[in-house]
Design a binder for these strands. Sequence first.
RNA 1: GCCCCCGUAGCCCAAUGGCAGAGGCAAACCCCUUAAAAGGGUUGAUGUGCGGGUUCGACUCCCGCCGGGGGCACCA
Length: 816
Amino acid sequence: MSEYDPQALQAKWQQRWEEMEPFRASEDPADPRERRYMLDMFPYPSGDLHMGHGEAFGLGDVVARYWFQRGYNVLHPIGWDSFGLPAENAAIKRNAHPAEWTYANIETQAASFRRYAVSFDWSRRLHTSDPEYYKWNQWLFIRFFERGLAYRKGGLVNWCPNDQTVLANEQVIAGHCERCGAEVIRRELTQWYFKITDYAQRLLDDMEQLEGGWPERVLTMQRNWIGRSEGADVQFYIEGREEPVTVFTTRPDTLFGATFFVVAVDAPLADEICAPERRESFEAYRSAVAKLSDIERLSTEKEKTGVFLGRYAINPVNGERIPVWAADYVLSDYGHGAIMAVPAHDQRDLDFARKFGLPVRVVVETGLPDPAESGVATPGEGVLVNSGPLDGLPKAEAIRRIIDILEADGKGRATVNFRLRDWLLSRQRFWGTPIPIIHCGDCGEVPVPDEQLPVTLPDLRGEALAPKGVSPLAAATDWVDVECPKCGGRAKRDTDTMDTFVDSSWYFLRYCSPGYEDGPFDVEQVRKWGPIDQYVGGVEHAVLHLLYSRFFTKVLHDMGMLDFTEPFVRLLNQGQVINQGKAMSKSLGNGVDLGEQIDAYGVDAVRLTMVFAGPPEDDIDWADVSPAASQKFLARAFRVFTDVASEPGVPYDQGDLELRRVTHRTVDEVTKLIESYRFNVAVARMMELTTAARKAIDSGPGPADPAVREAAEVLAIMLSLVAPYTAEEGWERLGHTGTVALAGWPQADPVLLVQESVTCVVQVAGKVRDRLEVSPDISEEELRALALASEKVQGYLSGEPRKVIVRAPKLVNIVP
RNA sequence: GCCCCCGUAGCCCAAUGGCAGAGGCAAACCCCUUAAAAGGGUUGAUGUGCGGGUUCGACUCCCGCCGGGGGCACCA
């Protein structure tokens, strides 16, 4: 049988691999091999694997399998992010328990992964919904709580009316729920938070380590998200109020240009200071704003709105009385929820001033038209005017000066503000990790003692899980009512569950010691395996999972449990698989099913198509690629394997030199291409090698030549990164036993990389006029003489050339 | 509005200062075949979105447009 039958190969080799377990990471401390940790973002079990999984895991597997071939001790684990809403919704619909749906899907995906031939170490498999896993979420939560990094507070939060739960800031994308797309509203609720803001500066600073290893755009997104800005806190007294109000400004130099003062309409301060005669209009305005969605409210297109509060603030540097307004363009949860408004030099303040007829005073002379007339604020560089002690100073100097003055008078200080908010982690849903806190009337928030962990979920199913605005756990009274661990009195469990992003913030550490029972992970094992050398996943997690994981890593580092501060050394964002220019969707009816593609073309052809389609970070339009053509190529390669007529062990050095050169050049290039993630080009080189081998068999030295065997063996090994089934069968047909996956990466012989002669292009005025066959180590002088002596070149020259540029050995350019 | 990335053959994509084409798809033609399929082979730019500039030399670097994609966008 030399017919290429992908389905038969799949059945055969899947079973063999299960027996061999070739991809188990070695825990032997005496193992001398260098270690590597390769990880794909773990999947959510929402049914079977789809095209996106096919691409991401296919690309990751190229890296992992390359490392296996290089002889590293590779950790390449798999698990499931198995808590989350879809399971709960499915359970309500089917009157079942979320676990049933979840674990059934996990088994389906696991089987598909095995068929897809991803080089996982299956022995380390984990599921975040297992009590053995989420126990450690709870343990970590308590450690965070003890360190003041987990706390509860009231305030306005994002609420998804569809999912009936709160969301973290990161999970609101342009005013919509990251999960379901529903428009998010604001609600006043008491919730649990992780104090990620304590780590804002370090999250920013440590990005330096990631430079070059992470895509630039992910770093940019994180920088934007963290949003550091330098400036000053300045204290303003408000007439009739004892305590001063602090505002944050990045432009303290413009303090003399402040002509009014704005408080966020939804800040408690606005309510507090509103004058009685303004109460009615203030409250009308406040409720009008409350009705607006975030999208409407935050739109920059929207006209400025606001109301005068009937009060005045005192400018701390010149004693000027300025009116206090409430407006929705000032955000209650950034800075101090109040600002000094400098309309001349801030567009937002100017828009507001022009709408309500407030004065505009230029204090920085920029040479641009007067903002009061032009309507365009002048935020740029300039020299200070109308500013007392700052007059005549340029902007940067004025900022330093005024901060000195404010600090000396105790009226302000230099400070830094971040856009990043604390991570809201409590959720009012069932299928997640219970928050391990007991609320006691006397003792307050009491952590569940470690020895009582895990706090497991009560057995709720079907209708009992229906969203009702509070966690379904609250209804399980026998679960909720407990003794206070501290005083023994009557107390109640916290009924919220954790955001599932908590689960995924440290799972990569658990893989290092998945069965470990004395902590979330074995510190020694993580020291050995961590950090992750290569992480692969979608860019949609740029400010979600990737930011949270970085935060967790830093906290765990501070707890002395990790010796590194960044979890992912290198990150690859694969593109999306789309169809006919659009994302696949049910409504468009353009979905492509991974399983069906595999049934039609085979695993190897589908994987090859994904890898060959283009650079890994580019989207793949399935309408532009051809799995059928991939299958054809694999059949062609397979025929090369079966045509080889020599036995293993023949001396290659007696083989055809020309083919050997092609083989070794291919090894050299493919090695470099794989290491620089240019997998599509690497595949192109493999195709060329296949063609060269074909030619050698048909019209060259013939199938028995040792060079043909060498080419075929190299091809099988390189192909094993992308098309493991075809490579295995080919390897076996070539007379080898064991698995090609561990055959070892070939090494290019430098002697065979040296070319005997090179074609040198001779240009006259940039146009090619002759080609010379020269030795690759020809000297500049020699080549110059040779080029000038060329008859073809002479025809274009009249007299001495003005200039001759020699780039030995490839090019000579003569300027006549 | 601001910032970033990308525009190469009908299509997907190589070439990162030195001969515009490596690879694939599609197309046309040839060989093989009684025929078809399978298989083997041959063929493609007058110049790299447009206009300038730097250079002996530009797809590549710089400036300005056009087109596409992405990120951020009342964060004081």
